[in-house]
Every structure is written in structure tokens, then in C-alpha cells.
Amino acid sequence: MIIMVAIDPSYLITQVLNGLVWGLVLALIAMGLALIYGLLDIVNFAHGAFYAFGAYVAWQTLLSGGNYWVALLTVPLAMILLGLFVESTLLRRLYGQDTKFTLIFNFGLMLVIVQTCRFIWGARGKPISIPSELAFSVNLGILSYPAYRLFVIALTSAIAIAVFVFLRKTHVGMATRAGIQNREMVQVLGVNIGRIYTLIYTIGICIAGIAGLVASPLFGVYPEMGAEVLIPAFVVVVVGGMGSFHGSILAGILVGQVATLPIIWEPRIAQVMIYIFMAIVLLARPAGLFGELGR
């Protein structure tokens, strides 16, 4: 506590907000992982690569004369097409097979996507500038904070809420939640679960791509960006409880703080803090915050 007092409160709040930005980006990636794992029983190792691909589509959009706002349309569109293509031509053949097939498939898919990005756009990182409309700082009283980061908080929150409403209020969302609890029974009741698989996979991929787009002005665009974000995203999924949508959002926000706040005191331990945090959560709740054991 003594250390806390010694810190400038505006710096502390800035770090909390930075943690929120990072946490919400992680939550977007983790929610797709959680939904795809929960419903399709697939651990999507390629999810980070889709995040990177989204960022590269944004870069290509800028190269082709578009701007950030155009990318906000081209990225989801490209991701939807890619998700539909992968699910309907390749992934679908592996449903009902041993888990190791989908693991190997997704690992291969990850390599193919990352190498394709390297081949088309090169191995060197690309800077994406913050859209000029948001290149200013907002005065929040005791501190001023970049408008683009506030925009990221708003957009990612809006996406999370939209997915939440979709799962809660629509019939397809209802069937998705039912499928996560009992895949066989959903089909027995007459629901064509294959269509729901396609939809959820595509939504997951699309949201990962949008996360790549919003993150790109903050962290740049480079081939390894997906691999770097995949491990923390898995930490979020595990902390939240495998397959839990709510868990992935809350855990994303928590992990964002855990990854960011220690920088104030000791930047060198910040990297490992999320793993220590995960270990503590799992010791207290072996199935994660919102998970159920024995799934």
C-alpha cells in the first residue's frame, strides 16, 4: 500500500486504462476460442493467425488507398469469407474424428496463414497509423488519454455486448448455448447443428480479425503477432473456464490488468505475472472462474 501511495494517480489510471485496452483485445480473441472450443470441441491453434490476418487485411486496405474506416468493413468481410471457406471445405471433414486430427489441422492452418502473410506482405513489420479523426487526446480530468484507445475500449465492448445479446436473445444463440451443454441432444431435437458450427466458427474468426485490426495501430502489423497473442488468449480462456463465454470476457479484463499493472513497479516481472495469476486461479478453482469440471 505504501508503494501505491507513492504513485502518481494519473499514471496509475493510465496503466489501468492501458490494461483495459489490452484485456479487451484479449477478450475478443478468447471469446472466439471459447465458443469454438465449447461448441465444436476444437482447440483453435490457428486463432492467433486469424488475428494477424485481420491486421494484414487492414494494412492492404490502407495500401490500396482505403483508410481505417474502410478497413472496418473490409476486415470483417474478408474474415467471414475466409472462415466460411475454411469451415465448409476443410474443417467440416474432421468433425466427429479424434481430437488429434483437428489439433494437427489447426497447427498446419496456422503455419499456412502466417507464411502466406509473410509471402504476400513480407516478414518486416508494418506501422499502421492511428486514424487522423482519432489522433488526439481526451481530457479525463486528472489525465489526458488517447482518443483511439478510448475508441478501442468502446468498440471491443460493443462487440462483446453484441455477441452476448446474440447468445441470450436469438434462437440460434439459444441453440448454441444448448449445443455447448449437450451436442447430441440439440440434434435429437431436430436442430441442424452443422449450420450452427459454421456460424459460430465464422463469428469467432471474424472477431479475431477485428481484434487484429483494432490492435494494429497500437502494436504494429507483423507475422508473429498472432503467436504472441495466442498464448495470453489461451491463459484467458483457461482462467475464464474452458468454453465459457462470460468467463472469457471477465478473465480477459482481469488478465489485461495483471499483465499491465506490474509494469508500474517492475516491468521485468510483468511478463510472467499472467501465468502466476493463472496458477493461483486454477489452484482455487480448477475449472476456471466460470468453468465446470468433467466437461
Binding site: 434462437h171 439459444m174 441453440a175 448455448r177 444448448a178 451443454q181 449437450n182 447430441e184 441432444m185 440439440v186 435429437v188 431435437l189 431436430g190 436442430v191
Partner: peptide, 26 residues
Amino acid sequence: YVPEDRGIFPGLTVHENLTIAADGVG
């Protein structure tokens, strides 16, 4: 079909359990 373990969706409401069945049969 009612399986031995009943196969209800425990996390969904009774209304939602029935609605999925209604959607399923059109």
C-alpha cells in the same frame, strides 16, 4: 427420444429447452 440421462440443457430455462425443440421441428 429421451435418453437415459434425460439430456436436458441444465443451464437453459425450461422455456428455452422447449423453444429449441419447437425450432428444431420447424
